[in-house]
């Protein structure tokens, strides 16, 4: 398993090289996934392959405590996630500017990374990203309520053991992972302390941003706030979709993301982006 130790933490990393030749110095596109049950596989099976096929070097990693990366007791706030990201890129030898493609909570990491290190971030693709909000507490409330309820169920109903006993290996193991993260680390406390990215901060985002949100998403307001506040922002709203656009709207997402990346990085635009047959 490819691993990089950054800031003393072991991270699981997968790299997809651009296919074919003619890319001596390909643009680097880094994928940042969402929370708890999410891991790099959500991008591995959707956007990363086509992005690599278009001529970029796709770098995927599991956030601290997620997927096959090390689960530490603490360090789940935005500042640590940003520091992890750049330390990991340093470890991989990617010291130049990169594009970040983020889903859900990964958007918090990506936005804060762009603000903290404008010299290292060339552009952002934010899919259903959390983070932008007018006031503290606004964006975290629903998420923390959901995670809090899950924490209780996992701890008191021994959900993981019960699922495993009846032979539901996938769900049982997912519940065990969630239990370990939610009840065994400082994740919830760290998330509660994460500040939103307010309009004044969004106005300081120096790189181009592509924001994609589902029409019926609970987070859709964050997309409108990005469009209003970020100087160079394109917003694409996916009709009929809610929060799960990455998994359920992959083909349409690629039709938007690949041309945008091509415009900003010089990668190829497939003739038929839709359908996944690239």
């Amino acid at each position: 398993m490819p691993e990089v130790t950054a800031r003393g933490v072991r991270f699981h990393v997968q790299t997809m090289e651009p296919s074919g030749t003619g890319f001596p110095d390909p643009p680097v596109v880094v994928f940042v996934h969402g929370l708890v049950l999410d891991n790099l596989s959500s991008f591995y099976y959707t956007l990363a392959g086509p992005v690599a096929a278009a001529g970029a070097r796709a770098v995927l990693y599991d956030l601290r405590g997620h997927g096959r990366s090390e689960r530490t007791a603490t360090g789940y706030g935005a500042a640590d996630a940003v520091a992890d990201l750049f330390a990991l890129l340093d470890g991989l030898g990617h010291s130049g500017r990169v594009f970040l493609v983020a889903n859900s909570f990964g958007g918090v990491v990506a936005l804060n990374a762009a603000l903290a290190r404008p010299d290292r971030v060339a552009g952002l693709v934010l899919v259903e990203a959390y983070g932008p909000a007018e006031q503290a507490g606004e964006w975290t409330e629903d998420m923390l309520n959901t995670l809090g309820k899950s924490a209780l169920a996992l701890e008191y109903e021994r959900l993981a053991d019960q699922l495993l006993e009846i032979g539901w290996r996938q769900r049982g193991r997912q519940a065990a992972t969630a239990d370990a993260l939610i009840n065994g680390t400082s994740l919830l406390d760290d998330l509660a302390a994460v500040e939103p990215v307010r309009p004044a901060d969004l106005a300081a985002v120096a790189c181009p941003v592509l924001a994609v949100y589902g029409e019926h998403s609970d987070v859709a307001e964050a997309g409108r706030l990005l469009l209003r506040s970020v100087p160079d922002c394109t917003l694409h709203v996916m009709a009929g979709h809610a929060h799960t656009v990455l998994r359920e709207g992959t083909a349409e997402l690629l039709e938007v993301v690949l041309p945008w990346l091509s415009h900003h990085t010089g990668t190829k635009v497939p003739v038929a982006a839709a359908g996944g047959a690239l």
Binding site: M1, S19, G49, A52, A53, T250, G276, A277, L278
Partner: peptide, 23 residues
Amino acid sequence: AEKLQDRYGGRVDFAAFIAGLGL
């Protein structure tokens, strides 16, 4: 997929194979 890539290398392009399929 990573183990397959290590074993069969360039002869079997799993990234492309996977990119052509849905999860």
